[in-house]
Design a binder for these strands. Structure first.
Lengths: 302, 302
DNA sequence: GATTGTTCTTTTATGCAACAATATACAATC
DNA sequence: GATTGTATATTGTTGCATAAAAGAACAATC
């Protein structure tokens, strides 16, 4: 605990951690957009899509090149070198940010009750070897996700939402209320192109990608699906509520094991739901959604 | 904009602002607990109730004494000097915290679209004459309430939730879904003492206090009522979702005018709802709640 | 005409030291 | 035995200087 170990976070081995992170964002975007090897990576477009300016995008692109995932030539920009695949298959960008690891560790500690409900910042800094600034970012993020809150005096308190063992069932019950209800909202509508995109994506997953995906990715994909649908209600309160539930469910997801068969059935239900939505039979869709959500928990993934 | 105006926030006239704030918290607690003039104010008990330690409580008590709302004698602690009434009737504690004012100003500016959706911290610091630290606290709070979020790079973005004119109707639609559904949850139950407390409170409001309350207080009381009820579902996701909606509705509430008659009818409905809940006729209660929430907007207060 | 390369400005993060607020423990008093 | 008074330790905040990241404007290139 000497004062000398405080310049921990700078100068991580070779390349900047940030650049790799940015590279990851770009690849994730490319995958979402269904880009293929050979497609151009246009700086401004990426910047707009990621709500950043070109400067950080360039860093990311250079990191991608270093990782062999993109090729660049002077004055001609960058081009995807490989089809973007799931992160599991892209060890080149392995640099998981330190804060991510700590985040996961904390989540685990809370879930396992290795951490008391009330904690002080100093305690966390010591326990996880974080600088104050790092910790604060982390706490802000966790607070935004809703599973920790500042106490009036010193310290923070974890929400019972996370620590309680019933949380999973409660999340399910809540979703079973809001998701069908969202579909039944008067103005509900899902643009055709959204339906097409979602169907493509689910089909890809169904036809093989599933086995190559990590639990985290499978979970993420499921969340996205449901969030896109609830967005159709045009009411941000529904969407936001679902997002919050999902950000907490994600904590549990890390701990569940994948039941690939159950998952396959699950994805099939997604596809069926899309069919019904496409023909605007919303009552039927809501009903389907209700049953979809009431199915025995498939490894925590929906 | 010289460098010399930077020690703005310290040394606010006479007494510490914080102490007055604490005093306010204590009075609010006393009111919630239904304390009367002459009741003892026990430090440790207050500290526990407010999630603080005795040190800040003492500050608050001394401020209360200075304001003439409590009397203290050495080694004998403090005693309530007056029946706690609504804040409007307690000009002695008028000290509105500066951050509160700025908060309200920002809220107003966002609602009136005087502020663009994307802003940088520096911009806000200049515009509202805040130090970085002050601003950050504020942003954290607003972020926790869910109407602003960090952009990946520099700056923040206000949620469309707030700026859109339909937000009020959307909030209503969302509540109309979750509140009745919460009552219909399998394990729903409202402890008798909660019902009693809520009824007392609503009755007090109904029988006169209403006219002495500020809009903010009326709104707050309404939120508390609904939150206590949704809590009965025993599912924190319902409660949390409602709290978030309410924290955004509060922004609108500042701008609506009170329709005391409509409000009286509103409170009568609350009382009726309590009666039905008491006899555990939950289906009926849920139905009542649905209609309660669908009533033409009563000055934005429910 | 769109995109990339480069430069310059603005904005934010970080670590530190002094300071303020809160928590805790124990003695004093009722 | 409970509560208050007081001292001390712990924890968090603030402002500042410096460093880093991001944004914006414009020239160069395709």
């Amino acid at each position: 605990m000497s004062a000398s170990d405080s310049s921990r976070q700078r100068s991580d081995k070779n390349g900047s951690e940030r650049a790799e992170h940015l590279a990851g964002l770009i690849m994730a975007l490319a995958r979402r957009e269904g880009m293929k090897a050979g497609d151009r990576l246009i700086e401004q477009r990426l910047a707009d899509a990621l709500d950043l300016s070109r400067a950080p995008i360039r860093l990311g692109l250079k990191a991608l090149e270093a990782a062999g995932l993109a090729r660049g030539e002077p004055h001609r920009g960058f081009v995807l070198a490989k089809n973007p695949t799931s992160g599991a298959a892209q060890p080149a960008l392995a640099a998981v940010r330190r804060s991510e690891q700590v985040y996961a560790t904390i989540a685990g500690d809370v879930l396992a009750s290795r951490l008391s409900a009330d904690v002080t910042e100093a305690e966390l800094m010591r326990r996880y070897s974080l600088s104050r600034a790092e910790l604060q970012r982390l706490l802000d993020r966790i607070a935004a996700e809703g599973w920790i809150a500042r106490l009036p005096g010193y310290g923070w308190r974890f929400a019972e939402t996370v620590s309680s063992p019933e949380a999973q069932a409660q999340a399910k019950a809540f979703r079973a209320v809001i998701e069908p209800a969202a579909i039944m909202q008067p103005g509900f509508a899902l643009p055709q192109e959204v339906i097409v995109r979602l169907r493509e994506r689910q089909q890809r997953v169904f036809e093989g990608e599933l086995d190559k995906m990590t639990i985290g990715e499978i979970f993420h994909s499921g969340c996205e699906f449901h969030e896109e649908i609830i967005r159709g209600a045009g009411n941000p309160f529904f969407l936001e509520a679902l997002k919050r539930v999902n950000s907490i469910r994600r904590l549990f997801a890390y701990r569940s094991f994948a039941d690939r068969d159950g998952m396959r059935r699950h994805v099939r239900e997604h596809l069926r739901l899309l069919d019904v939505l496409e023909t605007r039979r919303y009552a039927e869709a809501a009903d389907l959604m209700t049953r979809h959500l009431q199915r025995p928990l498939v490894a925590g993934v929906s």
